[in-house]
Design a protein around this nucleic acid. Structure first.
Length: 339
DNA sequence: CGATTTTGACCCGCGC
DNA sequence: GCGCGGGTCAAAATCG
């Protein structure tokens, strides 16, 4: 029954957005990590705290040189902070993949206009995959509506499918599933882009009652996450159009069930920002990019998902809702998971 | 009543 | 061609 905590929708907020993004080689093993120094990189939301200078690889080269340049371009307009840092993380993940043939960035949800402008130069279809805690999920400000749930082979937890409910034609979607390795962590994938600005008010029923999630579980999850790797992954996928979202609107989304959800709702709007984070957020929002996770044997990025091997049973379900906007556009949304 | 969740069915791509 | 797995659809149920 413990697994019943529904993570249903969490919504809104933005507070969870990452305040500090840490990019690191997930694997500690230097053997496979082409960028040992990566693990020590820390990124802050502060406008210019993201600095790739001084980082070198095994051979003493500066693998981040190009990234630094790109970053500077994007950072012309750092807002929203979270978005910016997350985006950069994504970029880093792509750029640093040794075997990655593609180094372009694609427009995605939540990107601000400037970012998109830059990105459009290199349109690529990608899907953003990120691991986050429930808290972070709750920070999603977009409004998501769940349209499906399926058991996934290899994972004891089902995957939940959400689409943006703010606008009918919005192509933004996201998938949320619990990490087989750590139930406290959710793997969220974003694809498509919002064709409208962020909602400023969460929809009335969003995540209302249907979802109840045990606060304890949520808390535990959040706490646990600090000890886990939050990896940011990218994979070729589907996405396309562009849309502004990075701006500052506030959205909604389903919330976690129960109180947690409720709390998020009210609190979120209040804290949406960037400043909220601070200490706690620092840890919770760390984003670690694991090169190994990004690329598979074929040199393609991916991995996080396929890892676990269990069987899909169809049965169990958890419903989850969650997450929301792309890392760079944090706000809130919640989700619920029923173990 | 409207919006959302749940859940089985359907569709499609992929590997054998 | 067949089976499997993943993504989406749609009807029913739920909730404020």
């Amino acid at each position: 029954m413990d697994d019943d905590w529904d993570l249903h929708a969490v919504v809104k907020g933005c507070s969870a957005a990452a305040t500090t993004t840490r990019v690191s080689a997930a694997t500690t093993s230097t053997d496979n990590n082409p960028f040992p120094s990566f693990s020590s990189m820390n990124f802050h939301d502060d406008q210019n705290s993201f600095d790739f200078h001084g980082i070198i690889d095994h051979d003493g080269n500066d693998p981040f040189q190009g990234l630094q340049e790109i970053y500077q371009e994007f950072c012309g307009d750092p807002s929203p902070p979270t978005a910016a840092s997350s985006t950069v993380s994504v970029m880093a993940a792509q750029v640093f993949q040794p075997h990655q043939e593609i180094m372009q960035i694609q427009p995605s949800l939540g990107m601000n206009m400037q970012m998109q402008g830059n990105i459009l130069k290199n349109p690529i279809q990608t899907k953003l995959v990120r691991q986050m805690t429930q808290e972070e999920l709750s920070a999603d400000s977009w409004a998501w509506r769940k349209y499906g749930q399926k058991p996934i082979k290899g994972s004891p937890y089902p995957r939940n499918y959400y689409r943006c409910s703010t606008s009918k034609g919005c192509a933004a979607r996201k998938q949320v599933e619990r990490s087989p390795n750590d139930p406290g962590i959710f793997v969220v994938s974003y694809s498509g882009e919002h064709t409208h600005p962020r909602p400023s008010h969460r929809s009335s029923l969003a995540g209302s009652t249907r979802n109840k999630i045990s606060t304890t579980a949520a808390t535990a999850t959040a706490a646990r996450i600090n000890n886990n790797n939050n990896s940011l992954l990218l994979q070729k996928g589907s996405v396309s159009s562009s849309s502004p979202s990075g701006s500052s609107f506030s959205p909604n989304t389903p919330l976690m069930e129960g109180e947690a959800a409720a709390q998020n709702i009210d609190a979120e709007m209040v804290e949406e920002e960037d400043g909220g984070g601070d200490e706690d957020d620092d840890d919770d929002n760390n984003i670690m990019i694991n090169p190994n996770d990004l690329v598979n044997d074929d040199g393609e990025m991916f991995k996080g998902f396929q890892d676990s091997d269990q069987s899909s049973g169809g049965g169990d379900l958890f419903s989850s809702g969650l997450l929301s906007s792309p890392p760079w556009t944090p706000t809130s949304s919640a989700a619920t998971f029923n173990g």
